[in-house]
Design a protein around this nucleic acid. Structure first.
Length: 623
RNA sequence: GCCGGCGUAGCUCAGGGGUAGAGCAACUGAUUCGUAAUCAGUAGGUCGCGGGUUCAAAUCCCAUCGCCGGCUCCA
């Protein structure tokens, strides 16, 4: 940071216009004009690199100012952002933060009178420099990298709070019985015990890579992309198909539940007064994008976009509960590099995000239960097993016993409860469905939360029976959790089955290839083509010039649910020889086969195969 | 982000200061096949990228990127 200090007999300024980095919030913190008699004027410009250690820059700058003010004997200070002091300016966000901090520190000295000029505006000024030896001083302040102990000083309030946060762990059974988690007999719920130990101590033991990583590549679903930032994957046709199917399924569930689907921007103004307040609770966890001079952050969920819509909506009590839904394609979280893990944790991911405005706590609880049931239905559709954890602020749980018991009952399994003495976050209740993977590690999928803070912060209101504006309660829900993570859970589930010696398989509606025709020899290619036309599912045929045994093997390794072998016998008898994942072979007609499949689709979405139907025409994406 | 391990052909991996290796896949040919791998041949590599040491580096050293694990973290 560069500073220029001038001891003056007189100083005045006034704002004349906005620059490209103007932000309205500055005008609330600083005056648009001002005039002082005898004073010390501090011109300053934040430079690139200052963000490496804000605290050190602030303490050095305030040190310089206080020392000079003492020497020249003045109590009047003018803090004046002046970009022209440097040719390597910091981002505006950093500059404003430095200004704020410096002013805050100086204001701590009661005797000082401080006048602050706004950042980001053109200003006219007049100055009368005293001209004595100490009256002019220019300095360059360089951040001192702090030692490791204090490097975490930037830690946000919320994170600090979480560290000191004490919690109690309970288990509640579906019939409402509650015991301390330490005393609960986990013998029938080994995964619940794993979740509890994992949540309580946070340590894990593993020396292997999660098995879904090999599977996602071998099955040609998803892969790393070395040309992108870490945690940004490439999706091959089969993976992209499964992803779209999963997305379609979840979106249909939510819209069926009353969610009004919207789409909101993926990037937001870093200086937006309301958003930046929210962001400060969780610093340095998002991608920042520089466009022209302005900075934007990439959303980490649909919250912002939906808050901003809800703020502008006209909502009466007749409209509640009011639900906005978005499939956030994409959400971005700049996780630490060491935290990334295959499809389990990405930096760019897709997540369904539902926000429900509720009139009062009764309505919020009602919706909470409905959305929990929807999440259960969703997990069943994906064929996923899960363990339930619910976190409450203790007072809320005490005052809402019947609700807690009803929740436990509708989860119909023993549920882990965490009780917090105080509320440090925006929610009073948070339900999670946790998946336990092949390495006994937990990952959160579905979640439902009651938010008691953000409708006020973002000024979201509805008009009640008396015509008065009220802040509603807000429910956050992700019915499936991240779609990428759903795929991780499906693959891990299959890896666990294989470990037990069982055959892996996808739910029929999600299988990229649902049926494969295998001609006994080239002579039957035509017959295959005829069957192909009669089957309205994702069906292909293996016309490669290789042995039949080999074709069977390849189809089995792709986990294809139905393998149809076609030779002289079948053509003659007008039937199909159907091989299924259980190894059985059955003779069936096409209509018989179709009616069996119909029930397996179970009213789930269907999408066409985005690949050539002839295997001989299909390129190879991975080894 | 920190600590540790790894990076050689499209894939899985061997080699370890002096001519770059295998299996599978690909390609060509033979084969026309009855329920988890038909046979033969051909082609394929700046040994992650960048520096350094050396007569000589895939090999040793430094730096960097990526992957995996642990810590931390997951609004």
């Amino acid at each position: 940071m560069r500073i220029l200090l001038i001891h003056a007999d007189r100083f005045s300024f006034r704002v004349t216009g906005e620059t490209s980095v103007a932000m309205p919030s500055e005008l609330q913190k600083a005056s648009p004009e001002g005039e002082v008699a005898e004073c010390l004027v501090v011109f300053m410009a934040a430079e690139k690199g200052d963000e490496a250690d804000i605290d050190s820059v602030v303490s050095q700058v305030t040190g310089e100012i206080l020392s000079l003010a003492g020497q020249v004997g003045t109590d009047h200070l003018v803090i004046y952002p002046y970009a022209h002091l440097s040719s390597t300016l910091s981002p505006p966000r950093v500059a404003v933060r430095l200004l704020d901090e410096i002013c805050r520190h100086l204001q701590g000295r009661d005797h000082l009178k401080i006048l602050r000029a706004p950042f980001g505006y053109y200003k006219a000024f007049e100055i009368a420099c005293k001209g004595h030896p100490l009256s002019e001083l220019a300095k360059t302040i360089i951040p001192v990298r702090q030692t490791e102990g204090s490097a975490k000083a930037e830690e946000s309030e919320a994170l600090k709070a979480e560290k000191t946060l004490k919690s109690e762990w309970m288990i509640i059974t579906p019939d409402g019985e509650q015991v301390s988690a330490e005393d609960f007999s986990f013998s029938t719920r080994p995964n619940l015990e794993r979740l509890f130990r994992y949540e309580k101590s946070g340590t894990r033991i593993s020396d292997q890579a999660p098995p879904h990583i090999e599977l996602m590549r071998r099955m040609e679903l998803v892969d790393y992309e070395p040309g992108a930032d870490q945690g940004n994957f490439r999706w091959y046709p089969k993976g992209q198909l499964m992803k779209r199917l999963a997305e379609t399924y979840v979106s249909r569930l939510v819209v069926g539940h009353g969610g009004m689907q919207v789409e909101t921007p993926i990037m937001y103004d870093y200086q937006h007064p309301k958003l930046s307040l929210y962001l400060q609770r969780f610093p340095a966890r998002q991608y920042v994008l520089l466009s022209d001079q302005k900075e934007y952050f990439l959303r980490f969920a649909a919250c912002f976009g939906q808050y901003l819509i809800q703020h502008d909506m006209q909502i009466s009590h007749h409209h509640l509960p009011c639900k906005l839904y978005e499939l956030t394609h994409y959400s971005f979280r700049r996780e630490q590099s060491g935290e990334l893990a295959g499809l389990k944790r990405l930096r760019t991911f897709t997540m369904p995000d539902l926000h429900t405005l509720a009139r009062d706590m009764e309505q919020a609880k009602e919706e909470f239960i409905r959305q929990t049931n929807l999440a259960i239905q969703c997990m069943e559709g994906f064929g996923l097993d899960f363990e339930v954890a619910i976190r409450f602020v203790r007072d809320f749980a005490d005052q809402n016993r019947p609700f807690v018991e009803e929740l436990a009952a509708c989860c119909s399994r023993p549920t882990l409860i965490e009780l917090w003495d105080e509320r440090f976050f925006y929610f009073v209740a948070k339900l999670e469905f946790n998946f336990i993977d092949a390495l006994d590690k937990a990952a959160c999928l579905s979640t439902v939360q009651i938010d008691v803070e953000n409708t006020e912060r973002f000024d979201i209101t509805y008009v009640d029976q008396n015509g008065e504006k009220q802040h509603p309660l807000l429910l956050h829900a992700s019915i499936s959790g991240s779609i990428d993570r759903v795929l991780y859970a499906i693959l891990e589930t299959q890896a666990m089955r294989m470990k037990k010696g069982q055959k892996a398989s996808f739910p029929f509606w999600l299988a990229p290839i649902q049926l494969r025709l295998i001609p006994v020899s080239e002579k039957f290619n035509d017959a295959c083509r005829q069957v192909l036309e009669k089957v309205p599912y994702r069906i292909d045929y293996d016309d490669r010039d290789i042995s039949m045994g080999r074709k069977i093997r390849d189809a089995e390794r792709e986990w294809i649910p139905y393998i149809l072998v076609l030779g002289a016998k079948e053509v003659e008898e007008h039937c199909l020889n159907v091989r299924t994942r259980d190894g059985a072979q059955r003779k069936m007609t096409v209509p018989e086969l179709l009616s069996e499949i119909e029930s397996q689709m179970n009213e789930k979405p269907f999408l066409e195969l985005p690949l050539p139907k002839r295997l001989s025409r299909r390129p190879i994406f991975v080894g």
